[in-house]
Nucleic acid binder design. Structure first.
Lengths: 203, 203
DNA sequence: ATTAAATTTGACCAAATAGTTAATATTTAA
DNA sequence: TTAAATATTAACTATTTGGTCAAATTTAAT
């Protein structure tokens, strides 16, 4: 029975993750993964059977990260108005440091809708977004916040956080003065998004 | 001197556009383009020299489409409050019918930041977004709308319009009941985005 | 109709690439 | 200590793929 060398296995997976996210499935060569992991290409197959299976592991892990980062404050016991700025802040932080993760997931999701569905369902089963929707609706009934669809509210939040960063290579040229990867842009965005989201809730 | 057969040239370009947008640069094979265009692979090189040059033409054209669609109402003589809903409506319409165009442009922009910069600058020189910014600021001074950065306002608008559609393969699973490609989702989104954008302007 | 130029094709080539295999080195356990 | 099991490697293979080239076909001018 194979026991595997955990160091080697993890090294391959980590390198594969980095390169897949950077270049996508078709742009990634198994030889490059092997080289950068400091191993033989045959060993990659020994551990992961094939390029596509290795890819699936990376892809699944990536989907988990995308949703995991959103889940951080999702069901904290605070009120919606209290935790919205926290969600914005933490998710924005995560996105700004992992733009290529999101580009990768979106791009590959369109290439493989079949098992994207499957993977997303697996990941979702671990996150209790229904509880969030419930508490959101309760606050609406209590008259604390405006009557708005919680689903649309969340879509707005992630849209505003994710898009400016995955669109960086295009956006940065639109407004020459802005350096999107700079702290200043990040702080400006955080304030704008927070204000926008809170404006949606205000009656 | 070559004159080329315009029909053949256009046929190749159109097929290449469709396949490149669907599968990306690395996922696209010249043989497939040739097959679907009903020509020989050698003819593709006769017209376009190489795969990468053909790709550049498609990529440039795609960037033009992305910005062109935004420019429609940008500098119409109406007030910001009047034209914002029109911009939302028309851009959302365009995005919903061309999701893969946006996924393609974003994804390839990260792969080729060098000439993405170049292309975006070319395309931008044709669009007068500075006029928009100027008229926006004038209305702020007149006290018609709230004091908000026009650039951030535009980023919000495109984020809210684009992201939900390029994120479809992932989002659709989050909320099982929603069918993102259905009219009902589109109309719902249009209203939410319009409200959100107008709320940003209201004093 | 003839010819010259432009267009289109079939057959081919070289490089790249995912995957295999058999031999070697290392670790584990008796 | 040794032998069996596990991990790692070098060399190889089959296929894919972008690109080439000379020959064939079509088009246009004389």
């Amino acid at each position: 029975m194979k026991r595997y060398n955990k160091d080697t296995e993890e090294k391959i997976l980590l390198v594969a993750q980095r390169i897949f996210r950077e270049k996508g499935y078709n742009g990634t060569k198994t030889q490059e993964i092997a080289d950068e992991a400091g191993i033989n290409k045959a060993l990659l197959h020994y551990y992961f059977t094939s390029k596509s299976i290795l890819f699936e592991k990376v892809f699944l892990g990536s989907i988990e990260e995308v949703f995991g980062a959103l889940g951080t404050h999702l069901n904290s016991p605070e009120s919606i108005i209290e935790k919205t700025p926290k969600m914005v802040s933490s998710y924005l932080q995560f996105v700004s440091k992992n733009s290529n993760l999101f580009v990768f997931v979106i791009s590959e999701a369109w290439q493989n809708p079949e098992f994207t569905d499957k993977f997303v369902k697996v990941v979702l089963s671990k996150i209790d977004y229904k509880q969030y929707v419930t508490s959101f609706k309760r606050e609406i009934e209590q008259g604390v916040i405006k009557d708005i669809d919680p689903v649309q509210f969340l879509i707005n939040l992630v849209s505003l956080c994710i898009f400016p960063f995955i669109g960086t290579p295009i956006i940065q040229n639109v407004f020459a003065k802005i350096e999107v990867d700079k702290k200043e842009f990040f702080l400006q965005r955080k304030e704008v998004i927070t204000n926008t989201m809170l404006a949606m809730l205000k009656k």
